[in-house]
Design a protein around this nucleic acid. Structure first.
Length: 801
RNA sequence: GCGAAGGUGGCGGAAUGGCAUACGCGCUAGCUUGAGGUGCUAGUGACAGCAAUGUCGUGUGGGUUCAAGUCCCAUCCUUCGCACCA
């Protein structure tokens, strides 16, 4: 009988569904395991071959855990709000809700054809009002705690589409859709105070098991730096506060720079002699796009403020003040002291404007470049700091600043507050009304969900307002506080909102009175293993940790961190090694692979393709190799030997493979786990036959990887019950060893011979056996033995002179 | 510029400091088959050699070690992320 995956795969998918084989049960006395993959955005393009890679990986973990006796939650859902759907809806004059339903149906069918053991009874969809009711509820809690506020913020504005763009839609300074020029525009936006959690988001990384590169990039993104704020005084007698990470170099400050947006300019306009020149520069800086600023990052520009100078508090010297766009208003105080000798940007600026460069840390060559090293170097030209190291000088100057009330230590973060508004239709409405009398007022929780109203056109307005602003029946309402006339907020939430808490909803997806029942959250949380793409490390992963910490603070969730373990997969590239894309013509459709080779081959190949954490190019030939392996496993049933028990010749090999596969699955080494099973099969085929017991073990090991074929073979060969209800095989460490082991013999580190020695042969015997070998004797003849090294079960090395 | 990951056969990739190239693909030869985008067997890092065997070999240059793909120092290149964060 031939391996007919086209019949087998739908057959078992149906059985699993009917038997609710993978349902997570609410029996809170059992040991639990919560495995999570990032729920997809159901785009119109359908599933990409990249999607099944993480899904299969955690499916393997989930299936293994079930066989190990855990109550496993492995859920799936849809992150369905978002721009592509809205754009598609606009172009085709179809409601996004309908598009979403179609896409979800398509994605679900594709995912099911791959045999993932998702608990489909817990499916969630962020666009479902019963779901986004709770997204809005969380927003209201943030608002009530002062963590959501409205503020002016700079947004990307396409001058040709007249629409606000997300950062992702801006490609090289141009609109992704029309290619038009994108400029900054200041608009009033809802913001979330993620910065309030910056320190905890760094500190608590110590409490979780994330792969290092995820922790590192989160830390870099949050960008904590320690330094000091120092009070300078201007010649007008006003205080000008700066932030520096190098207070030790205060004696080397030869000028100051403030951001073009710094408020001092407007406040002191009357005293600035060249105010016109300053204003021209301000306007030019405002017009520059991010792209332009980055392009000309190296060429420093600026204008010296005439009429106001600053006094260096440490030596009372008067120094000039410049405005320059290399100082950002959004970081620190928007003003810096410039120490050209020890900062590369200040150095470039000083060279361009011919400003003095004073060395205060000896150790470099400031004729050539700024000396920025903090680890070496000694303070010079710095009064009472002279002779100290940089670190000592930092401590000494901060103490001095504090004693004289001229400054204090300060921590800053690169992380900015989260711009939470989108002027779009297809997102969660923000549940706030604006009342002339009462200001921003949250709508009562009893009115949630605030549903997205039906509208005619999804186009934003001419001036970039949300399409919802055109619907008067939605906009005009009454103030929940005073009862007077009020207007609803017409912005919607970003796509990141719904995905910041979806893993909580899986715990109790149908709850109508809370985002999830407390007992359910207490049982299932934290997520034991969360796998997702590196591209979500700094946005989604950080946002969801922030929300989770907030929910912890208000007593909604039982733990401080949502995810106990985080891993990340590499991308699957096209056969030519480039990223898969329609324009490159290298896209592989998973449906074609399932149809031609079967889901099991597809799953096996995606796990065998290479190191799970690295990107790897698709190869149709390697895929065929995986199909060949499954064919051989299938054909093996013809050579089964009657009777039970293990075949002695294969016993060690089986125990070793159980160990290897079990351990590799835990460490993301799916590729070597499969290689181990292939090796085992090769070894089996050197024997005359295989016992039924051994075949069963092989099927069990392969089951998480290739669930359909193994379930079929299990049934076909008369084993008891259904495979998914059995137990994961265990190995005996003592039985993993062979009786005799091949040991390499080296002379002076070069292989001369190989010997078969008994396992755990003592050093003396191994060396003696090596010396008795004729090839070794030839190599050491007439030479003096200096050293003898024996590594048990590995090698012997004889060092001669 | 900063940060992260990575450079190993013809290709994808293996290797707690201990036999480099496991496993798979591809290729070569033979067998099987009416046929083959089938199956099986053997071979397959480079160079020299009829052969046994020898020499070289993990981006490059040094170092530590009995022993280095692996550890240390320097350097080059590739990919990705951030981008004037004081």
């Amino acid at each position: 009988m031939k391996y007919n995956f086209q019949e087998i795969e739908p057959k078992w998918q149906k059985i699993w569904e009917e038997k609710k084989a993978f349902r997570a049960v609410n029996d809170y006395t059992k040991p639990k395991y919560y495995a999570l993959i990032e729920f997809p955005y159901p785009s119109g393009k359908g599933l990409h071959v990249g999607h099944p890679r993480p899904y299969t990986a955690l499916d393997i973990v989930a299936r293994k855990r079930r066989l190990e006796g855990y109550n496993v939650l492995y859920p799936m859902g849809w992150d369905a709000f978002g721009l592509p759907t809205e754009n598609y809806a606009m172009q085709n004059h179809i409601h996004p809700e309908i598009v979403t339903a179609q896409n979800v149906a398509h994605f679900k069918k594709q995912a099911q054809s791959l045999g993932f053991s998702f608990d489909w009874d817990r499916e969630v969809n962020t666009t479902d009002p019963a779901y986004y009711k709770w997204t809005q509820w969380i927003f209201l809690q943030l608002f009530k705690k002062g963590l959501a506020y409205k503020s002016e913020a700079s947004v990307n504005w396409c001058t040709s589409c007249k629409v606000v763009l997300a950062n992702e839609e801006v490609v090289n300074g141009a609109c992704e859709r029309c290619g038009g020029e994108v400029v900054h525009k200041v608009k009033s936006q809802w913001m979330l105070k993620i910065t309030e959690y910056a320190q905890r988001l760094i500190d608590d990384l110590d409490k979780v098991d994330y792969i290092d590169r995820v922790k590192t990039s989160q830390k870099n993104w949050i960008g904590r730096s320690t330094g000091a704020e120092v009070k300078f005084v201007t010649t007008l007698g006003d205080e000008l506060l700066i932030y520096t990470t190098r207070p030790d170099t205060l004696f080397g400050a030869t000028y100051m720079v403030i951001s073009p947006e710094h408020p001092m300019i407007a406040q002191k306009a009357d005293q600035i002699q060249n105010i016109e020149e300053i204003r021209v520069y301000q306007e030019a800086a405002a017009k520059k796009s991010d792209f332009e600023r980055a392009e000309i990052a190296k060429d420093k520009t600026g204008v010296c403020i005439q009429g106001i100078r600053a006094i260096n508090p440490v030596n009372q010297k008067e120094i000039p003040i410049y405005i320059s766009d290399y100082v950002l208003m959004s970081y620190g105080t928007g003003a810096i002291m410039a120490v050209p000798a020890h900062d590369t940007r200040d150095y470039d600026f000083a060279k361009a404007f011919d400003l003095p460069i004073v060395e205060v840390v000896a150790g470099g060559d400031i004729e050539k470049e700024a000396f920025t090293d903090c680890a070496t170097g000694t303070m010079v030209n710095s009064g009472f700091l002279d002779g100290l190291s940089v670190e000592e000088a930092k401590a000494a100057i901060i103490q001095w600043l504090e004693e004289n009330n001229l400054g204090y230590p300060k921590v800053n973060f690169k992380l900015r507050d989260w711009v939470f508004s989108r002027q779009r239709y297809w997102g969660e409405p923000i549940p706030i009304v604006h009342c002339e009398q009462c200001g921003f007022v949250p709508i009562p929780e009893s009115e949630l969900p605030l549903r997205l109203p039906e509208i005619e056109s999804f186009e934003p307005t001419e001036d970039g307002q949300s399409p919802l602003s055109k619907l008067e029946s939605f906009v005009n309402t009454t103030c929940p506080h005073c009862g007077g006339p009020a207007k609803r907020e017409t912005d919607t939430m970003p796509q990141w909102a719904g995905s910041s808490w979806y893993f909580l909803r899986y715990c109790d997806p149908d709850n109508v009175s809370a985002l999830a029942a407390k007992e359910a959250l207490e049982y299932w949380l934290p997520v034991d293993w969360y796998n997702g793409g590196m591209e979500h490390t700094t946005l989604h992963l950080l946002y969801s940790r922030f929300w989770h910490k907030f929910l912890y603070d208000i007593g909604v969730v039982p733990c401080e961190e949502p995810y106990a373990k985080r891993t990340s997969h590499g991308m699957i590239l096209g056969e030519n090694g480039e990223k898969m894309s329609k324009s490159r013509g290298n896209v592989v459709n998973p449906d074609d692979i399932v149809a031609e080779y079967g889901a099991d081959t597809m799953r096996l190949y995606e796990m065998f393709i290479g190191d799970f954490e690295k990107s790897a190019p698709w190869s149709q030939n390697s895929l065929k190799g995986c199909k060949r392996f499954l064919d051989r496993v299938w054909n093996l049933q013809d050579s089964l030997i009657d009777g039970e028990g293990y075949s002695p010749a294969l016993e060690a090999a089986f125990h070793r493979t159980i160990k290897k596969v079990s351990e590799d699955i835990e460490h993301l080494k799916f590729n070597t786990a499969i290689a181990a099973m292939m090796s085992l099969l090769n070894e089996i085929q050197t024997q005359d036959g295989l016992t039924r017991t051994d075949y069963r073990t092989l099927l069990m090991l392969l089951n998480p990887f290739a669930p359909h074929i193994t379930e079929e073979l299990y049934q076909l060969n008369g084993y008891e019950g259904l495979l998914f209800e059995q137990s994961w095989p265990v190995y005996d460490a003592d039985k993993c060893k062979e009786d005799t082991i091949e040991v390499a013999v080296q002379v002076n580190g070069k292989i001369k011979s190989k010997l078969n020695l008994p396992a755990d042969c003592p050093k003396e015997e191994a060396v003696a056996a090596a010396k008795a070998d004729s090839k070794v004797q030839a190599a050491i003849q007439g030479k003096q033995i200096v050293k003898e090294i024996a590594v048990p079960n590995k090698l012997v090395n004889i060092v001669v002179k």
